[in-house]
Simulated assay, not measured.
Amino acid sequence: MKLFGALFILVATTWFGFDLAKQLNARPKQLRQLKSALRSLEAEIMYSHRPLPQIARLLTEQVPKPIASFFDSFATYLEMGQKSAGEAWLLSIEENWRLTALKQGEKEALKQFGQTLGQHDRYSQQKHIVLTLNHLEREEADAVDRQTRYEKMVKSLGFLTGLLLVILLL
């Protein structure tokens, strides 16, 4: 019975470490997906002249989840027609943020971008998108740095914590 308990503790703490490492790995990936979506948004605004709800639906199909969920709810709010583009953007951020591995810095950059969405001409909108992309570039560099620094450590720490607990309890 002790062996079963020890094995359970070891597996649980190791799983916890790997789960934390997975979150460290997901953030840079999601930032790249978000930047790609914003670049597509920029291209669509500048060259296709499609309505914003159509662009958001198109982006939903182009990017993987959880970023796609954000654009899906953004398109839904726009299609309902009761919210401005900025309000729909902010509501989409709040509604889908918990699904992402993104941090507060990215959230603030996206909120600031959302306040300008749909209020300017195409060229000013392009400048706001580029500004947001630059901010996300810095955040991605930070996320990659954190990932390389801490990913292996978190995995090892999970296992070693479980091993320590098992030794102390036996």
Score class of each variant (00 low, 15 high):
residue 25 N to S: 14
residue 121 D to R: 09
residue 31 L to R: 04
residue 5 G to E: 10
residue 30 Q to S: 06
residue 103 K to L: 08
residue 105 G to L: 06
residue 85 A to P: 07
residue 68 A to Y: 01
residue 161 T to E: 01
residue 105 G to C: 02
residue 132 T to E: 04
residue 56 A to G: 05
residue 63 V to F: 07
residue 20 L to Y: 02
residue 128 H to R: 12
residue 49 H to M: 10
residue 123 Y to D: 10
residue 103 K to W: 03
residue 51 P to Y: 03
residue 2 K to I: 10
residue 98 R to A: 13
residue 94 E to L: 09
residue 99 L to W: 01
residue 148 T to W: 02
residue 133 L to D: 09
residue 133 L to T: 08
residue 81 G to T: 01
residue 23 Q to M: 08
residue 82 Q to D: 07
residue 153 M to T: 15
residue 125 Q to P: 02
residue 66 P to Y: 04
residue 114 G to V: 05
residue 127 K to A: 13
residue 11 V to K: 01
residue 135 H to S: 13
residue 50 R to L: 15
residue 23 Q to L: 13
residue 2 K to D: 09
residue 113 F to R: 06
residue 94 E to I: 07
residue 8 F to L: 14
residue 139 E to M: 09
residue 129 I to R: 08
residue 118 G to I: 08
residue 13 T to R: 01
residue 75 A to V: 06
residue 41 L to D: 05
residue 63 V to W: 04
residue 49 H to W: 06
residue 148 T to E: 11
residue 168 L to Y: 07
residue 52 L to M: 15
residue 68 A to T: 00
residue 130 V to S: 15
residue 93 I to W: 08
residue 120 H to N: 12
residue 143 A to Y: 08
residue 116 T to N: 13
residue 145 D to N: 09
residue 162 G to P: 00
residue 120 H to P: 00
residue 120 H to K: 15
residue 36 S to F: 14
residue 96 N to D: 04
residue 81 G to K: 03
residue 39 R to K: 14
residue 28 P to M: 08
residue 149 R to Q: 09
residue 149 R to N: 04
residue 101 A to F: 01
residue 93 I to D: 06
residue 135 H to V: 10
residue 159 F to T: 14
residue 116 T to A: 15
residue 144 V to D: 06
residue 48 S to H: 09
residue 45 I to C: 06
residue 88 A to Q: 02
residue 63 V to P: 02
residue 53 P to R: 01
residue 39 R to P: 00
residue 97 W to F: 10
residue 113 F to Y: 09
residue 10 L to K: 00
residue 164 L to R: 00
residue 109 A to D: 05
residue 132 T to Q: 05
residue 107 K to Y: 09
residue 124 S to I: 10
residue 7 L to V: 12
residue 16 F to C: 10
residue 57 R to V: 04
residue 114 G to W: 05
residue 120 H to Q: 13
residue 167 I to V: 15
residue 131 L to Q: 14
residue 119 Q to P: 03
residue 51 P to H: 09
residue 101 A to W: 02
residue 155 K to H: 04
residue 37 A to T: 08
residue 21 A to R: 06
residue 168 L to C: 07
residue 79 E to M: 05
residue 39 R to G: 10
residue 39 R to L: 15
residue 55 I to P: 07
residue 169 L to G: 09
residue 169 L to Y: 14
residue 76 T to M: 08
residue 69 S to G: 12
residue 20 L to G: 00
residue 160 L to C: 11
residue 117 L to R: 05
residue 47 Y to I: 07
residue 68 A to E: 01
residue 49 H to S: 14
residue 150 Y to I: 03
residue 15 W to M: 13
residue 18 F to P: 01
residue 61 E to A: 15
residue 2 K to R: 15
residue 4 F to R: 13
residue 82 Q to N: 09
residue 66 P to M: 04
residue 42 E to S: 11
residue 17 G to V: 03
residue 128 H to E: 13
residue 114 G to M: 08
residue 14 T to K: 03
residue 104 Q to G: 02
residue 76 T to S: 11
residue 101 A to T: 06
residue 147 Q to V: 01
residue 52 L to W: 03
residue 43 A to F: 08
residue 74 F to H: 04
residue 87 E to S: 12
residue 64 P to K: 12
residue 93 I to M: 12
residue 42 E to K: 11
residue 16 F to E: 00
residue 122 R to N: 12
residue 42 E to V: 01
residue 108 E to Q: 14
residue 144 V to S: 03
residue 2 K to M: 11
residue 6 A to S: 14
